[in-house]
Design a protein around this nucleic acid. Structure first.
Lengths: 266, 266
DNA sequence: CAGTGGTCTAGACCACAAG
DNA sequence: TTGTGGTCTAGACCACTGG
């Protein structure tokens, strides 16, 4: 499933093992206007986001941190509580406090519906790779991914299918720097975001998405088995990792007759 | 702007004024497995959602509630804190705790872009009402709005424009029961959700939205000044108020060349 | 069993708003 | 000045986990 090259890449990722080191106690300002729990929260957040921690990594306990910072346990509790609310940490009674598994549970598939109208969940869409190459980026891609001059991208064109029915045609751009070796992997039956996280240490934390109605051009019509001019949904996505850095750019063209995008506004 | 009829409706809305009454102290179970702060939170939530409170309504203070429930102030703080996180309450230092203004800041307009690509914010789109009538609902509308047999709906078809450019054609359905008098109002330069809240006591709290790419039919093409077959975005929205009750159903058809839907996935 | 987080108390002191 | 919420402390007791 993963080539030898890719496995080697995986080992090169520097993950800090064991317990997360204590933040620097001396950086706490007891007299300033910023509350203690806020300062402590920021210090922890800085540590968590500055490195590629393994998910499920253990934090020091409440008592340890309280002692280290010379504050009350309640103050640590409050800092932790906010980080839990923000999805950064997870607390488990009797066990400890851990770094939350970055979850991004928008599977591409949940936006599709089938003829009957039923939404298909839990089904893994298959991918048929049409093109995969390493290439200099176009100006637009360079800007979106904030690439240095000379940096190249891994470019993939693939068709996504469910039950052998083509659903969407996708162009995908990844910075070569972060994803070297990706082009040699077999991703035909895998979801990409778990691969980014597991094999390249790049969890996807959030994404911008732009939707526009369009009509199929010749290429899209051919691959999606529809007619030129049929309605399609153009989905542009910019996915981000730690520090809001963009790491993936995709442009999908979804079959209009099978596409239904559902969202909840709050 | 508002007809006499509509003003009369407004006065009929029963809003509880002054300070929110204390929840029933006797409903607290000090021995059960459910934490005290959780029980108190649920009681408050029940009160807030059961009636049409004015926004900005004052809650009893921490000390008063702590005394009323015979619990510590910290317990009340924790209950309040969670409700603040959920957007139900707002706390203001030195003043008190208040019911949060139900905010639903998705203005229709923010999803459009203009030729240059600039997004237009803060501009109020105009409406041109094409049809407005009170009618028995179709089966589909009846189901979506969960209407009793015999209940009628206010049906409106309108064109939405920005800078005199038609952007979207909209069908809108409201239950006559809640919105009696709406059909006599002039809504050509107003946003609807503030009207629902202010004049009918029905704040919109959240909405389901479904997007599909389509091609313009004759009617849409005519009103949107495009050609039959041009791409359009079909936007179906079901808007909800307290207790997740659906109170508005709209089906919009947006001009494809001016429509760009942006969302952030987390 | 020892150690973890979860709940709860009863205080203290502060910053802020309003009369 | 009074009352509000915001922060912080130093405890207590509990429920859960793991060895």
């Amino acid at each position: 499933m993963i080539s030898g090259e890719a496995v080697k890449m995986k080992k090169n990722i520097s993950k800090i093992k064991g317990i997360i080191p204590f933040p620097d106690k001396n950086r706490i300002d007891f007299k300033g206007p910023l509350p203690l729990y806020r300062q402590i929260k920021d210090l922890i957040l800085e540590q968590v986001h500055s490195e590629c921690w393994d998910f499920e990594e253990a934090m020091p306990s409440e008592n340890e941190l309280a002692a280290a910072f010379s504050v009350s346990v309640g103050t640590i509790k409050k800092a932790f509580a906010e980080l839990v609310h923000e999805g950064v940490l997870v607390r488990r009674q009797g066990r400890g406090t851990f770094i939350a598994r970055p979850s991004f549970n928008r599977s591409f598939i949940r936006f599709f519906r089938f003829a009957g109208g039923e939404v298909t969940e839990n089904e893994i869409p298959a991918s048929r790779v049409i093109n995969m190459e390493i290439t200099p980026p176009t100006e637009g891609v360079r800007e979106v991914l904030r690439l240095e001059p000379g940096e190249r991208v891994i470019y993939m064109k693939r068709l996504r299918l469910l039950r052998d029915i083509p659903l969407a045609l996708e162009d995908l751009y990844l910075p070569e720097k972060r994803f070297a070796g990706f082009e040699k992997m077999d991703i035909s039956h895998e979801l990409l975001y778990p691969i980014y996280a597991k094999d390249f240490g790049v969890p996807i934390l959030w994404a911008d998405e732009y939707l526009e109605p369009r009509q199929a051009n010749e290429e899209a019509a051919f691959h999606l088995s529809i007619n030129v001019g049929d309605p399609i949904m153009r989905i542009e996505r910019i996915a981000h990792t730690y520090r809001d850095e963009p790491v993936e750019y995709r442009i999908g063209l979804g079959r209009g007759d099978r596409f239904r995008y559902h969202l909840v506004l709050r």
